[in-house]
């Protein structure tokens, strides 16, 4: 593929085009990903998540600058929500990343969720792969401002930083249980404001109480104690320490062989998801539309139960 060749040769416009291709799930998206895949697996992927307005973009900006000072290249994916009413989106994270302009070692891409509810867009994982293949050594992924169930970042990132800030009202509201459990590192940002110490204590308390429920991507069993760091992203304070913590976590993942274990689980999950979608699509293509509708009618009329209905469907679908 010409586009992929150019991308691998460092052409930034080709990189931008390829990202659009996988984001739009265009006709050549799978071919592009297939060609890029052998070049992936080198980047360390860092998720930055947390409630709206806690300073995620500002932190990404500060972190990227520090990484650049260490001669590491940085790809950034910033996700904002799609409006459910119009299908449009206002992507504003770049406003806080102006310090990174003009640096060929940085590439920033904004993404809309396009209906996805997990805090990322459906194609975010593929966009990360593209940036990885393009040679960016660190990929920073800013999720939408999350509430509690948006924990998809846990399976897309190697290291998850949960950002919080004082003055969000009820601390327990600010860091919901599901988000608690995916944190590898806590950043209490806006530490220049009153109440930062209180927020740190609230997190420490919740760490003590954390239920060991199996949230997807739960970090409960990995033996890593998530550190709690205070930052002032606007002034760069505490950001060097945050970077050190991220790198320490990356090293820990490799030393403890957790990295391979998680990658294995991730790939398995990915294959299952693709398989599920593909099987469903093939079955649908094979069955006449009326067949499914007839079954819906029969289940509605209580002449069939859903399990038997599916069994019948699979029989009439033949071998997939």
């Amino acid at each position: 593929m010409e586009l992929v060749k150019k991308l691998l040769a460092g052409d930034r416009r080709a990189l931008a085009h390829t990202i659009s291709l996988v984001e739009d799930d265009g006709p050549e998206a799978h071919a592009a990903l297939a060609a890029l895949y052998p070049h992936t697996g080198r980047a360390h992927v860092i998720g930055i998540t947390g409630a709206p307005g806690t300073g995620k973009s500002t932190l990404v900006n500060a972190l990227a600058r520090l990484y650049r000072r260490r001669q590491l290249t940085v790809g950034i994916v910033a996700v904002d929500p799609t409006s459910p009413f119009s299908g449009g989106a206002l992507l504003g994270d770049r406003i806080r990343m102006r310090d990174l302009a003009g640096d060929a070692g940085v590439f920033i891409r904004s993404m809309a969720t396009r209906g996805s509810l997990g805090g990322l867009a459906q194609a975010t994982g593929d966009v990360i792969l593209v940036l990885d293949a393009a040679g960016f050594q660190r990929v920073l992924v800013e999720t939408v401002g999350v509430g509690q169930a948006e924990v998809e970042i846990a399976s897309s990132a190697h290291t998850v930083v949960v950002v919080t800030a004082p003055g969000l009202g009820d601390e327990v509201q600010a860091i919901k249980a599901g988000v608690m459990e995916i944190a590898d590192i806590f950043a209490v940002n806006k530490a220049d404001r009153e109440g930062a110490e209180h927020t740190v204590m609230a997190i420490q308390m919740m760490q003590g109480l954390a239920p060991q429920a199996m949230v997807p991507g739960s970090r409960a069993d990995d033996g890593w104690e998530p550190p709690i760091l205070k930052t002032v992203a606007t002034r760069g304070q505490g950001v060097a320490e945050l970077l050190e913590a991220i790198e320490a976590h990356a090293a820990y993942l490799h030393e403890s062989h957790l990295f391979e274990r998680r990658e294995r689980a991730r790939v398995l999950g990915e294959l299952e998801a693709i398989l599920q979608a593909e099987l469903l699509a093939r079955l649908r293509a094979r069955l006449p539309e009326e067949r499914l509708e007839t079954l819906v009618e029969q289940v509605l009329a209580r002449r069939l139960d859903p399990y038997t209905a599916v069994a019948q469907l699979l029989e009439s679908g033949g071998s997939l």
């Binding site: 409006s83 009413f85 119009s86 449009g88 989106a89 504003g92 770049r94 302009a101 003009g102 809309a112």
Partner: peptide, 19 residues
Amino acid sequence: LRDAGMEVIYTGIRQTPEM
């Protein structure tokens, strides 16, 4: 533009032509 279904990247003030 967002309400018309477009994806709008807003970069903020004081942008140079290069940016």
